[in-house]
Design a protein around this nucleic acid. Structure first.
Length: 264
DNA sequence: ATGGTTGCACGGCAA
């Protein structure tokens, strides 16, 4: 059976309904994980998205900031959301479908200054990574079929950014973040489902800043959005897709959908 | 070096 899983930071789900409809029609994901929905649950346009062919959903949001959701062609056997760093800021939601746990994460961006002593947002980001790492390490054995997706707000590899050298002190690509993301990845032996298909020598991005006149021409991107699978699922990996074209869909988003397809 | 843009229960904050 095919399982096609997409992660997309939509930066306001209410502004993105036309783009969501187009993406779902063109790519037909089975499980669609959204981040930065920016809407409280009572105002979430849930029925509209369910009508696009994904009739099962869970949402977990708040006013103005953050927010995560999962839509699916198949019913959920369970769903949970966890809070991290003592904050109720809607950065995690998880479901089980077909015996597979799917975790959808929105890691804090971390602000501008990569120093936890002077920047509380960066401190929060590091702490969030440590807490999620401890939780996955304690929670689940490696042989459990699990998928972790989301806007992890870290581009770990040299070719996950347009210039490794120029971004070494830029939040999202600093060594301390990359190291912590590596520890999270090591907990369950998570396999990077996108780099499974794209060699590390090749540039690959999922985000381009709004602050570029011509994002495609300058192509100063970063790969902040990820799909990971546990080792037991990795042998089923069949395809990947980064919907670069969606960067031009109006109104524009800075993140594009990232998809992995597996046979389960 | 700086400034560049977007979104949000509308305006300072987060990204």
């Amino acid at each position: 059976m095919r399982l096609k899983v997409t992660s997309w930071n939509v930066n306001s789900v209410r502004l993105r309904l036309d783009s969501l409809k187009r993406f779902i029609a063109e790519h037909q994901p089975d499980v669609l994980c959204l981040q930065e929905t920016k809407v409280p649950d009572e105002h979430f346009p849930r029925a509209e998205i369910e009508a696009m062919g994904l009739p099962h959903s869970v949402v977990h949001g708040m006013k103005s900031y953050n927010g995560v959701a999962i839509f699916s062609t198949r019913p959920f056997e369970a769903s949970t959301s966890r809070s991290w760093c003592g904050k109720q800021d809607c950065r995690h939601i998880a479901v089980r479908t077909d015996g597979i746990e799917v975790h959808n994460l929105y890691v804090p961006a971390g602000g501008d200054v990569p120093d936890p002593k002077v920047n509380p947002k960066f401190k929060h980001k590091l702490r969030f990574l440590k807490e999620t790492t401890a939780w996955f390490a304690a929670e689940a054995p490696r042989d459990r079929p699990m998928i972790l997706v989301g806007d992890l707000n870290i581009a770990p590899l040299e070719n996950d950014v347009w210039s490794h050298k120029q971004l070494l002190k830029v939040v999202s690509h600093t060594p301390v973040e990359v190291e912590l993301l590596g520890r999270l990845q090591a907990t369950l032996g998570w396999v990077d489902a996108i780099r499974h298909f794209v060699p590390e020598t090749e540039k690959l991005y999922s985000w381009w800043s709004y602050r570029n006149r011509d994002w495609a021409k300058s192509d100063r991107g970063r790969r902040l959005d990820h799909v990971w699978v546990t080792p037991v699922l990795a042998r089923g990996l069949r395809e990947h897709h980064v919907a670069r074209a969606a960067r031009d869909w109006m109104p524009a988003t800075d993140h594009v959908p990232v998809t992995a397809t597996l046979e389960i």
